[in-house]
Protein backbone atom coordinates (compact mmCIF):
# COMPACT_ATOMS: atom_id res chain seq x y z
CA UNK A 1 0.00 0.00 0.00
CA UNK A 2 2.81 2.35 0.84
CA UNK A 3 4.23 1.72 -2.63
CA UNK A 4 0.98 2.82 -4.16
CA UNK A 5 0.91 5.99 -2.11
CA UNK A 6 4.45 6.80 -3.10
CA UNK A 7 3.59 6.12 -6.72
CA UNK A 8 0.70 8.56 -6.52
CA UNK A 9 2.95 11.30 -5.20
CA UNK A 10 5.60 10.57 -7.79
CA UNK A 11 2.96 10.55 -10.55
CA UNK A 12 1.66 13.86 -9.32
CA UNK A 13 5.18 15.30 -9.29
CA UNK A 14 5.82 14.11 -12.86
CA UNK A 15 2.68 15.81 -14.10
CA UNK A 16 3.18 19.03 -12.15
CA UNK A 17 6.84 19.35 -13.11
CA UNK A 18 6.02 18.72 -16.76
CA UNK A 19 8.53 15.89 -16.88
CA UNK A 20 10.15 15.84 -20.38
CA UNK A 21 9.76 12.07 -20.87
CA UNK A 22 6.12 12.31 -19.95
CA UNK A 23 5.54 15.31 -22.20
CA UNK A 24 7.22 13.56 -25.11
CA UNK A 25 4.80 10.66 -24.80
CA UNK A 26 1.76 12.92 -24.43
CA UNK A 27 2.84 15.01 -27.39
CA UNK A 28 3.28 11.96 -29.64
CA UNK A 29 -0.13 10.65 -28.60
CA UNK A 30 -1.76 13.92 -29.54
CA UNK A 31 0.14 14.17 -32.79
CA UNK A 32 -0.71 10.62 -33.88
CA UNK A 33 -4.38 10.74 -32.89
CA UNK A 34 -5.00 14.24 -34.25
CA UNK A 35 -3.34 13.31 -37.54
CA UNK A 36 -5.49 10.20 -37.72
CA UNK A 37 -8.63 12.28 -37.13
CA UNK A 38 -7.64 14.75 -39.84
CA UNK A 39 -7.03 11.90 -42.29
CA UNK A 40 -10.29 10.24 -41.25
CA UNK A 41 -12.13 13.51 -41.84
CA UNK A 42 -10.59 13.90 -45.29
CA UNK A 43 -11.82 10.42 -46.26
CA UNK A 44 -14.87 9.98 -44.00
CA UNK A 45 -16.67 13.25 -44.69
CA UNK A 46 -16.71 12.87 -48.48
CA UNK A 47 -17.69 9.19 -48.20
CA UNK A 48 -20.41 10.00 -45.66
CA UNK A 49 -21.65 12.90 -47.76
CA UNK A 50 -21.75 10.79 -50.89
CA UNK A 51 -23.68 8.00 -49.14
CA UNK A 52 -26.06 10.58 -47.69
CA UNK A 53 -27.21 11.93 -51.04
CA UNK A 54 -26.43 9.32 -53.68
CA UNK A 55 -28.71 6.40 -54.50
CA UNK A 56 -27.18 3.38 -56.22
CA UNK A 57 -27.43 -0.41 -56.04
CA UNK A 58 -25.52 -1.75 -53.06
CA UNK A 59 -25.72 1.51 -51.14
CA UNK A 60 -27.63 -0.10 -48.28
CA UNK A 61 -25.02 -2.80 -47.94
CA UNK A 62 -22.25 -0.20 -47.91
CA UNK A 63 -24.01 1.81 -45.22
CA UNK A 64 -24.43 -1.25 -43.04
CA UNK A 65 -20.84 -2.31 -43.64
CA UNK A 66 -19.42 1.05 -42.62
CA UNK A 67 -21.59 1.06 -39.52
CA UNK A 68 -20.30 -2.41 -38.65
CA UNK A 69 -16.71 -1.25 -39.18
CA UNK A 70 -17.23 1.26 -36.36
CA UNK A 71 -16.80 -1.70 -34.05
CA UNK A 72 -13.53 -2.97 -35.55
CA UNK A 73 -11.33 -4.42 -32.78
CA UNK A 74 -8.15 -2.31 -32.63
CA UNK A 75 -5.89 -5.35 -32.32
CA UNK A 76 -7.24 -6.78 -35.55
CA UNK A 77 -6.64 -3.49 -37.33
CA UNK A 78 -3.14 -3.48 -35.85
CA UNK A 79 -2.56 -7.01 -37.12
CA UNK A 80 -3.74 -6.22 -40.64
CA UNK A 81 -1.70 -3.02 -40.86
CA UNK A 82 1.29 -4.92 -39.46
CA UNK A 83 1.00 -7.51 -42.22
CA UNK A 84 0.73 -4.79 -44.85
CA UNK A 85 3.74 -2.86 -43.56
CA UNK A 86 6.04 -5.71 -42.51
CA UNK A 87 8.96 -6.42 -44.84
CA UNK A 88 7.02 -9.27 -46.44
CA UNK A 89 3.89 -7.19 -46.90
CA UNK A 90 2.81 -5.25 -49.98
CA UNK A 91 3.76 -1.94 -48.37
CA UNK A 92 6.94 -3.38 -46.86
CA UNK A 93 9.29 -1.39 -49.13
CA UNK A 94 8.02 1.84 -47.57
CA UNK A 95 9.66 0.77 -44.28
CA UNK A 96 6.95 2.32 -42.19
CA UNK A 97 6.60 -0.37 -39.54
CA UNK A 98 7.42 0.87 -36.02
CA UNK A 99 7.10 4.52 -37.00
CA UNK A 100 4.54 7.13 -35.94
CA UNK A 101 3.26 7.05 -39.52
CA UNK A 102 2.31 3.39 -39.09
CA UNK A 103 0.37 4.31 -35.97
CA UNK A 104 -1.40 7.12 -37.81
CA UNK A 105 -2.37 4.70 -40.58
CA UNK A 106 -3.79 2.18 -38.10
CA UNK A 107 -5.76 4.79 -36.18
CA UNK A 108 -7.03 6.34 -39.40
CA UNK A 109 -8.48 2.95 -40.33
CA UNK A 110 -10.11 2.76 -36.91
CA UNK A 111 -11.56 6.26 -36.96
CA UNK A 112 -12.63 6.64 -40.60
CA UNK A 113 -15.70 4.36 -40.33
CA UNK A 114 -16.85 6.32 -37.27
CA UNK A 115 -16.53 9.63 -39.06
CA UNK A 116 -18.09 8.31 -42.27
CA UNK A 117 -21.03 6.60 -40.56
CA UNK A 118 -21.90 9.48 -38.23
CA UNK A 119 -21.43 12.06 -40.98
CA UNK A 120 -23.68 10.07 -43.28
CA UNK A 121 -26.44 10.01 -40.69
CA UNK A 122 -26.12 13.73 -39.97
CA UNK A 123 -26.00 14.75 -43.62
CA UNK A 124 -28.78 12.40 -44.68
CA UNK A 125 -31.14 13.84 -42.07
CA UNK A 126 -30.19 17.37 -43.11
CA UNK A 127 -30.58 16.53 -46.77
CA UNK A 128 -34.11 15.22 -46.18
CA UNK A 129 -34.95 18.44 -44.42
CA UNK A 130 -33.26 20.84 -46.88
CA UNK A 131 -33.72 19.14 -50.24
CA UNK A 132 -36.62 21.20 -51.59
CA UNK A 133 -35.28 24.44 -50.17
CA UNK A 134 -31.89 23.94 -51.81
CA UNK A 135 -33.42 22.99 -55.15
CA UNK A 136 -35.24 26.33 -55.04
CA UNK A 137 -31.87 28.06 -54.85
CA UNK A 138 -30.89 26.41 -58.11
CA UNK A 139 -27.76 24.93 -56.58
CA UNK A 140 -25.73 22.10 -58.08
CA UNK A 141 -24.83 19.02 -56.07
CA UNK A 142 -21.51 20.37 -54.83
CA UNK A 143 -22.93 23.70 -53.75
CA UNK A 144 -25.75 21.87 -51.95
CA UNK A 145 -23.24 19.65 -50.20
CA UNK A 146 -21.19 22.64 -49.12
CA UNK A 147 -24.29 24.14 -47.55
CA UNK A 148 -25.21 20.88 -45.82
CA UNK A 149 -21.70 20.56 -44.36
CA UNK A 150 -21.92 24.05 -42.92
CA UNK A 151 -25.46 23.53 -41.64
CA UNK A 152 -24.33 20.34 -39.92
CA UNK A 153 -21.17 21.87 -38.49
CA UNK A 154 -21.93 21.21 -34.83
CA UNK A 155 -22.89 17.58 -35.35
CA UNK A 156 -19.89 17.02 -37.58
CA UNK A 157 -17.57 18.53 -34.98
CA UNK A 158 -19.02 16.11 -32.45
CA UNK A 159 -18.26 13.32 -34.88
CA UNK A 160 -14.60 14.34 -35.04
CA UNK A 161 -14.37 14.52 -31.26
CA UNK A 162 -15.86 11.03 -30.97
CA UNK A 163 -13.25 9.81 -33.44
CA UNK A 164 -10.45 11.48 -31.51
CA UNK A 165 -11.70 9.95 -28.26
CA UNK A 166 -11.57 6.50 -29.78
CA UNK A 167 -8.10 7.02 -31.27
CA UNK A 168 -6.37 8.51 -28.26
CA UNK A 169 -7.64 5.83 -25.87
CA UNK A 170 -6.84 2.93 -28.16
CA UNK A 171 -3.88 0.65 -27.37
CA UNK A 172 -4.21 -2.56 -29.39
CA UNK A 173 -3.44 -1.18 -32.84
CA UNK A 174 -0.65 1.25 -31.98
CA UNK A 175 1.25 -1.24 -29.84
CA UNK A 176 1.37 -3.74 -32.72
CA UNK A 177 2.36 -1.37 -35.53
CA UNK A 178 4.33 1.10 -33.38
CA UNK A 179 6.20 -1.41 -31.29
CA UNK A 180 6.28 0.89 -28.25
CA UNK A 181 9.85 2.02 -28.89
CA UNK A 182 11.20 4.49 -26.38
CA UNK A 183 11.47 8.04 -27.76
CA UNK A 184 10.06 6.89 -31.10
CA UNK A 185 6.63 5.32 -30.91
CA UNK A 186 5.57 5.48 -27.31
CA UNK A 187 2.15 6.95 -26.78
CA UNK A 188 0.18 7.27 -23.56
CA UNK A 189 -1.74 4.00 -23.76
CA UNK A 190 1.22 1.83 -24.75
CA UNK A 191 3.47 3.44 -22.16
CA UNK A 192 0.90 2.83 -19.44
CA UNK A 193 0.70 -0.84 -20.45
CA UNK A 194 4.46 -1.24 -20.48
CA UNK A 195 5.30 0.72 -17.34
CA UNK A 196 2.58 -1.04 -15.37
CA UNK A 197 3.95 -4.43 -16.34
CA UNK A 198 7.43 -3.25 -15.34
CA UNK A 199 6.11 -2.11 -11.97
CA UNK A 200 6.85 1.56 -12.66
CA UNK A 201 3.48 2.71 -11.46
CA UNK A 202 4.38 6.40 -11.10
CA UNK A 203 4.76 7.10 -14.81
CA UNK A 204 1.79 4.87 -15.65
CA UNK A 205 -0.41 6.68 -13.15
CA UNK A 206 0.74 10.11 -14.31
CA UNK A 207 -0.08 9.26 -17.91
CA UNK A 208 -3.33 7.63 -16.86
CA UNK A 209 -4.29 10.82 -15.12
CA UNK A 210 -3.58 12.88 -18.25
CA UNK A 211 -5.39 10.40 -20.49
CA UNK A 212 -8.50 10.53 -18.32
CA UNK A 213 -8.33 14.32 -18.29
CA UNK A 214 -8.15 14.38 -22.08
CA UNK A 215 -11.06 11.94 -22.35
CA UNK A 216 -13.11 14.11 -20.00
CA UNK A 217 -12.12 17.25 -21.87
CA UNK A 218 -13.20 15.73 -25.18
CA UNK A 219 -16.55 14.76 -23.69
CA UNK A 220 -16.91 18.22 -22.18
CA UNK A 221 -16.24 19.73 -25.59
CA UNK A 222 -18.86 17.49 -27.16
CA UNK A 223 -21.30 18.52 -24.49
CA UNK A 224 -20.49 22.21 -24.82
CA UNK A 225 -20.70 22.20 -28.59
CA UNK A 226 -24.12 20.53 -28.38
CA UNK A 227 -25.23 23.02 -25.76
CA UNK A 228 -23.99 25.92 -27.86
CA UNK A 229 -25.77 24.54 -30.90
CA UNK A 230 -29.01 24.16 -28.98
CA UNK A 231 -28.67 27.58 -27.39
CA UNK A 232 -28.31 29.19 -30.79
CA UNK A 233 -30.89 26.80 -32.22
CA UNK A 234 -28.35 25.47 -34.68
CA UNK A 235 -28.82 21.88 -33.55
Amino acid sequence: MQDFAASFFEAFRLVISLDPDLLEVVWLSMRVSLSAVVMAALVGFPVGAFLAVARFPGRGLLVVTISALMGLPPVVVGLVVYMLLSSAGVLGPLQLLYTPTAMIIAQTILVTPIVAALARQTLEDLHDEYRDQLVLYGLGNLAQLKTLLWEGRYSLLTTLLAGFGRAVAEVGAVIIVGGNINHVTRVMTTTIALETSKGNLALALGLGFILVTIAFAVNALVFMSRAAAVRHAYA
Binding site: E129, D132, Y234
Partner: peptide, 9 residues
Amino acid sequence: LQHAVLLRR
Protein backbone atom coordinates in the same frame (compact mmCIF):
# COMPACT_ATOMS: atom_id res chain seq x y z
CA LEU B 1 -42.76 26.20 -48.81
CA GLN B 2 -45.57 25.11 -46.52
CA HIS B 3 -42.85 24.10 -44.09
CA ALA B 4 -40.20 26.68 -44.90
CA VAL B 5 -36.68 25.56 -43.99
CA LEU B 6 -34.63 28.33 -42.46
CA LEU B 7 -30.89 27.86 -42.48
CA ARG B 8 -29.05 27.42 -39.19
CA ARG B 9 -27.65 30.92 -39.37
